[in-house]
C-alpha cells in the first residue's frame, strides 16, 4: 500500500517577474517501509516538495494522498491534527523545544495526543534507548551535541507512531561521525520497525546509504532509482 501518493503536483511562486515552478508536475508513490532520499541541486524544489507532502504548504495544483486521506480536503485545524497523528517531522535544526529536556521533548508529542502516562513513560524510555540517548534523558537541548539533538528529534518524530517520517536535510548541520551515527539509527529503525523515511539531502555519504533515490531538477523528477545497501 502507498503511504504517500502525489499526482501531477505543482507549486508555482508567481510573486516575482517570472513565475517560478518550484515543483512541476510531480507524480510520486512511496510505499510503506521505503527509505527514500530526495536529492538535487539547490533550488531544485526538495524543501517545497517535502513541505507539501507534510501538509505544511499548499500545492498550486495536483493532490497529495497520505494513506487514504486527500490532505488538501482538510481544514487548517484538521490538518494540524492530521500532522500530529500521521507524520513525524525532523528538521535541519530548531527541532526541539529549548526549555524541555530530551525526555520531555520526546514525550511532548504524546502529550499532545493525550497518551496515558504509563504508556508515555514506557515509550519515551524505549525510544530514547533506540536512538542511544538513555543516559541523556534529562538534559536540555543546549546540553546536547547537534547529532544528539537530531537523534532526540527522530525519537520525538517516532513517538506519535506516524505513518512516515519526513526529514528535510536532517544531517546538514552534522559532522561526518554524527551523520553516520544518525543514518545508522534511521536504517536500523527502517529495518527493524519497518519505519518509512523520506528525507532530502545534499550529502553523498547519505545518498550512498539510501535505498531509493529520487532526483529533482527544476521541480521535476529526473530520475528515480533503487539501490542495494548492506
Amino acid at each position: 500500500m502507498n503511504v504517500i501518493t502525489t499526482s501531477n503536483l505543482s507549486k508555482v511562486y508567481d510573486e516575482g517577474p517570472v513565475p517560478v515552478y518550484a515543483v512541476n508536475g510531480v507524480d510520486l508513490e512511496i510505499k510503506k517501509g521505503e527509505f527514500t532520499a530526495i536529492v538535487g541541486p539547490s533550488g531544485s524544489g526538495k524543501t517545497t516538495l517535502l513541505n507539501i507532502i507534510g501538509g505544511l504548504d499548499k500545492a498550486s495544483s495536483g493532490g497529495v494522498k497520505i494513506g487514504s486521506t486527500e490532505i488538501e480536503n482538510l481544514s487548517a485545524n484538521e490538518l494540524i491534527d492530521f500532522r500530529l497523528r500521521n507524520i513525524g517531522f525532523v528538521f535541519q535544526s530548531y527541532n526541539l523545544i529549548p526549555v524541555l529536556t530530551a525526555k520531555e521533548n520526546t514525550e511532548f508529542i504524546m502529550l499532545l495526543q493525550n497518551t496515558p502516562k504509563a504508556e508515555r513513560d514506557k515509550r519515551v524510555e524505549s525510544l530514547l534507548a533506540e536512538v542511544g540517548l538513555e543516559d541523556r534523558m534529562n538534559n536540555r537541548p543546549t546540553e546536547l551535541s547537534g547529532g544528539q539533538q537530531q537523534r532526540v528529534a527522530v525519537a520525538r518524530a517516532l513517538a506519535s507512531k506516524p505513518q512516515f517520517i519526513l526529514a528535510d536535510e536532517p544531517t546538514a548541520n552534522l559532522d561526518s561521525k554524527s551523520t553516520a551515527n544518525l543514518l545508522d539509527i534511521m536504517l536500523k529503525l527502517n529495518k527493524e520497525e519497518d519505519t518509512t523515511f523520506v528525507f532530502s539531502t545534499h550529502d553523498q555519504r547519505v545518498i550512498d546509504r539510501a535505498r531509493r533515490i529520487i532526483t529533482l531538477e527544476d521541480g521535476k523528477i529526473i530520475s528515480d532509482e533503487k539501490q542495494h545497501v548492506q
Binding site: 505544511l56 485545524n77 494540524i80 500532522r83 517531522f89 528538521f91 530548531y94 529549548p98 499532545l112 506519535s160
Partner: peptide
C-alpha cells in the same frame, strides 16, 4: 518564530 513554526508543524494546534 522558528520554534513556533516547528511546534505548529509537528502538530501543536492554534488553541494551544
Amino acid at each position: 518564530v522558528k520554534e513556533l513554526g516547528m511546534l505548529m508543524s509537528i502538530g501543536m494546534n492554534k488553541t494551544r
